[in-house]
Simulated assay, not measured.
Amino acid sequence: MTAEKSPLYEITADLLDGHPLKLSYFAGRALLIVNTASQCGFTPQYAALEQLYRDFNPRGFEVLAFPSNQFGNQEPGTAADIATFCERNYGVSFPVFAKIDVNGANAHPVFRFLTGARRGFFGTKRIKWNFTKFLVDRSGNVVGRYAPSTEPAKLRDMIDLLLKQQ
């Protein structure tokens, strides 16, 4: 599938500031898409995600964060609260989108696409917790799904491999 034809790139999502962004903006780049939360035991992964972004962004890599409050009310804040938290505590410079649902009838189309393309443990589509990660190649294909406990640094080799492919 070419980047121009991937269904992922037809989806639009609002950034934290409320501006809509069509994901075709990221066509041709490798992506790590993560559902995040500010008050989760995995929240310190923001630092490792930022490091991946800084290390690989010049080569065509993006981290896309999608805050969600669906797990233990761990992202209760407003968009402004989330933006301030991410910047102040972790120096996040990668795109953070508006808070969304990742499961259920109101699941955002991004996560409906991701979970449909790559199922989790025991074949489930459902996101189990915050900081589930999806690795997407330059053509918009989901090539990996990783549990919240998977440290972002463990994805370095796979990201490097994706960036070497044209």
Rank of each mutant, 00 (worst) to 15 (best):
T2C: 01
A3E: 14
E4N: 14
E4Q: 15
E4D: 15
K5D: 14
L8E: 14
E10P: 00
I11C: 10
T12K: 14
T12G: 10
A13T: 13
L15R: 15
G18A: 03
H19E: 15
H19V: 05
H19Q: 15
L23R: 13
F26M: 07
A27Y: 08
G28K: 10
L32P: 11
I33K: 04
I33N: 09
N35C: 12
T36G: 10
T36K: 09
T36A: 13
A37S: 05
A37Y: 01
Q39M: 14
Q39K: 15
F42W: 13
P44V: 11
P44D: 10
Q45T: 13
Q45V: 14
A48C: 07
L49W: 10
E50P: 13
Q51N: 13
L52A: 08
L52D: 06
R54E: 15
D55H: 12
D55A: 15
F56W: 11
P58T: 06
F61D: 11
F61P: 12
V63P: 05
L64R: 03
P67H: 10
S68N: 01
N69T: 04
F71D: 05
N73L: 05
Q74R: 08
E75D: 08
G77I: 01
A79T: 01
D81F: 09
D81W: 12
I82F: 08
T84W: 03
T84G: 13
C86Y: 11
E87G: 12
E87Y: 10
N89L: 08
N89F: 04
N89D: 15
G91D: 11
G91Y: 13
G91Q: 14
V92F: 10
S93W: 04
F94C: 14
V96N: 12
V96Q: 12
A98G: 07
K99W: 02
I100A: 05
V102H: 04
V102L: 04
A105V: 08
A107G: 03
P109K: 03
V110G: 06
F111I: 03
F113S: 02
F113E: 05
L114H: 02
T115V: 11
T115F: 09
G116T: 08
G116F: 03
R118Y: 09
R118Q: 14
R119S: 05
R119G: 05
R119V: 08
G120L: 07
F121T: 04
F121E: 03
F121W: 11
F122V: 05
G123W: 02
G123D: 00
G123Q: 00
T124V: 08
T124Y: 00
K125M: 04
R126E: 09
R126V: 05
I127N: 02
N130W: 05
F131M: 07
F131A: 02
T132G: 03
K133F: 08
K133N: 06
F134D: 02
D137P: 06
R138C: 09
R138K: 15
R138L: 10
R138I: 11
R138D: 09
G140L: 12
G140W: 12
N141L: 06
N141M: 06
R145G: 03
R145S: 04
A147Q: 09
A147T: 07
P148G: 11
P148T: 09
S149Y: 02
R156Q: 13
R156M: 08
D157N: 14
D157M: 07
D157R: 13
D157W: 00
M158Q: 15
M158H: 14
I159D: 12
L163Y: 07
L163C: 11
